[in-house]
Computed example of a mutant assay.
Amino acid sequence: MALLAAQQLPLSGLQATYASAAVGGDLAPVGEKLVLHVRNGSGSTVTVTAATPGTVGDLAVADAIQAVPAAGSVFIPLKSVFRDPMTGRASITYSAVTTVTVAVLQLP
């Protein structure tokens, strides 16, 4: 898994730097003002899964699953519910990674 770093989004704007989505998934920081921007450059929909390691009672909380349309993009809030207790980060996986790029943005 690749380790993604958050990029500060100043009030004046930002031209973000995007990384290729990793085959084995990515680890992203979590926090109240952090979002994952996923861009899909392929001709097919790509599914992004953010693991939710928590439980309520004995029941596992379902993972967050987001479809990214062909040639589209999505923003996924990286809230603390995605924090893995072992790594302190969110575990993000992709159904395909060819032409998929990602960036973690920290809002002002």
Rank of each mutant, 00 (worst) to 15 (best):
M1I: 08
M1W: 12
L3P: 08
L3M: 14
L3F: 07
L3I: 13
L3A: 05
L4N: 12
A5H: 13
A5K: 13
A6W: 07
A6F: 07
A6V: 07
Q7T: 08
Q7N: 09
P10E: 09
P10Q: 07
L11T: 03
G13Q: 00
G13T: 00
G13M: 00
L14V: 11
L14P: 04
A16S: 14
A16Y: 14
T17Y: 15
T17R: 15
Y18A: 07
Y18I: 04
A19Q: 15
A19V: 10
V23I: 10
G24V: 08
V30Y: 09
V30I: 11
G31E: 03
G31H: 00
E32W: 05
E32R: 14
V35S: 14
L36A: 01
V38Y: 03
V38M: 05
R39F: 10
N40T: 14
G41A: 02
S42M: 07
S44T: 10
S44C: 02
S44L: 11
T45E: 09
T45V: 01
T47S: 12
T47M: 07
V48C: 04
A51Q: 08
A51M: 09
A51G: 01
T52C: 08
G54T: 09
G54S: 11
T55H: 11
V56N: 10
V56H: 10
G57L: 04
G57E: 15
D58G: 03
L59V: 12
D63Y: 08
D63F: 11
I65K: 15
I65E: 11
A67Q: 15
V68H: 08
P69Y: 12
A70K: 14
A70W: 15
A71Y: 15
A71E: 07
A71C: 02
G72M: 13
G72R: 14
F75A: 10
I76Y: 02
I76E: 06
I76A: 00
L78R: 02
S80R: 14
F82Y: 15
R83W: 02
D84E: 09
D84W: 00
T87E: 01
T87R: 06
T87F: 01
T87L: 02
T87I: 05
G88Y: 00
R89C: 08
R89H: 13
A90Y: 05
A90C: 03
A90V: 06
A90G: 06
S91E: 07
Y94D: 15
S95F: 00
S95R: 05
S95C: 06
V97A: 11
V97K: 01
T98F: 05
T99D: 15
T99A: 13
V100S: 04
V102D: 13
V102K: 07
A103V: 06
A103W: 09
V104Q: 07
Q106G: 10
Q106W: 01
L107G: 05
L107D: 12
L107I: 04
L107S: 11
P108S: 10
